[in-house]
Computed example of a mutant assay.
Amino acid sequence: MTKDCFKMIMKILNTIRTIIYINLNYCDISQIDGSMIINSLKENQLLRVLDISKNKIGDAGALALAELLNILNSLMEVNMIGNEITSKAGSEIGKILKTNRTLINIDLTYNKIDDDGILIFADLLKITIILKIFNLSRNCFTDKSAIALIAALKENNSIIYLDISINDITDDVVLVQNIERKMSIKKEQNVEEENVEEQNAEKANVESR
């Protein structure tokens, strides 16, 4: 990203605090510039979607994002595909998301998060009731983390899509199929529960007449 382009973006973000959707993918954003851009969003309480994929914001930018998620109560989707993020920043994002109440979709595909970071995400899956879509494809974690993630799903009622494909996992396809089967069963159970609730509500209305 050229200096002029960076200055223009910063001017816009520091002036307009009502942006809902920001797309900065493929902008060759460095760690320093990425951190400054993300930090400038702290006053924007309307931001819903942030796409900063395919850049080079690294751990510095990702740590700034973790701080942003801790402050901003509006973000619902974050795309950080291909940003050279490691477990150092990944762990912090996982910790922050444990108390976040708005983010439903985060994509961390094509980064460098290993077992240390993914195990934090496994802990997150045990308690989150907001997050629905989580993409961890093409990182560098092993069976240890994959098994922990799958086990965490047993305690989770919000996740509808989790992608752990193309990592250092043996029997990769089997693991992904297990996740998909788990999701399918959970969806069916949720639908059945909703149908039962609707039937009970209708019955109550009839009896009250």
Rank of each mutant, 00 (worst) to 15 (best):
D4I: 04
D4M: 03
C5S: 14
K7N: 14
M8E: 11
I9C: 02
K11N: 09
I12W: 08
L13G: 03
L13T: 07
N14H: 13
R17Y: 06
N23F: 12
C27H: 10
C27A: 06
D28V: 00
D28H: 03
D28S: 03
I29L: 01
Q31W: 05
S35G: 11
S35Y: 07
I37D: 02
I37V: 10
S40R: 08
Q45Y: 09
L46Y: 15
L47K: 01
V49I: 13
I52R: 00
I52N: 00
S53M: 04
K54F: 13
K56Y: 10
I57F: 08
D59M: 03
D59S: 12
A60G: 08
A60V: 15
L63C: 13
E67D: 14
E67P: 01
E67L: 09
L75I: 15
E77N: 07
V78E: 02
N79F: 12
M80Y: 10
M80A: 08
I81A: 01
G82T: 04
N83E: 02
T86A: 03
T86R: 02
A89C: 03
S91Q: 03
S91H: 06
E92T: 15
I93V: 15
I93K: 10
I93Q: 05
G94D: 06
G94C: 12
K95G: 11
L97N: 09
K98E: 14
T99W: 09
N100D: 08
R101W: 09
T102G: 06
T102Q: 12
T102Y: 08
I104L: 11
N105M: 13
I106N: 11
T109Y: 09
Y110F: 13
N111D: 07
K112C: 13
I113P: 00
D115T: 02
D115W: 09
I118T: 07
L119F: 11
I120D: 01
I120H: 06
F121K: 00
L124T: 07
T128G: 02
L131E: 00
L131A: 06
K132C: 08
F134C: 07
F134N: 00
L136N: 04
R138W: 14
N139S: 01
C140Q: 15
S145M: 09
I147Q: 08
A148I: 12
A148N: 05
A151I: 04
L153A: 03
E155L: 03
N156P: 02
N157D: 10
N157H: 11
Y161L: 15
L162P: 00
L162S: 05
D163L: 11
I164G: 05
I164P: 00
N167Y: 12
N167G: 05
D168H: 14
D168L: 15
D168K: 15
I169K: 04
I169L: 08
I169R: 07
T170F: 13
D172N: 03
D172F: 12
L175V: 05
Q177E: 13
Q177S: 14
I179R: 01
I179T: 02
E180F: 09
R181P: 00
R181K: 13
R181T: 13
K182H: 15
S184C: 10
E188I: 11
E188D: 07
E193C: 10
N195D: 10
V196N: 11
A201L: 07
V206I: 14
E207M: 14
S208T: 12
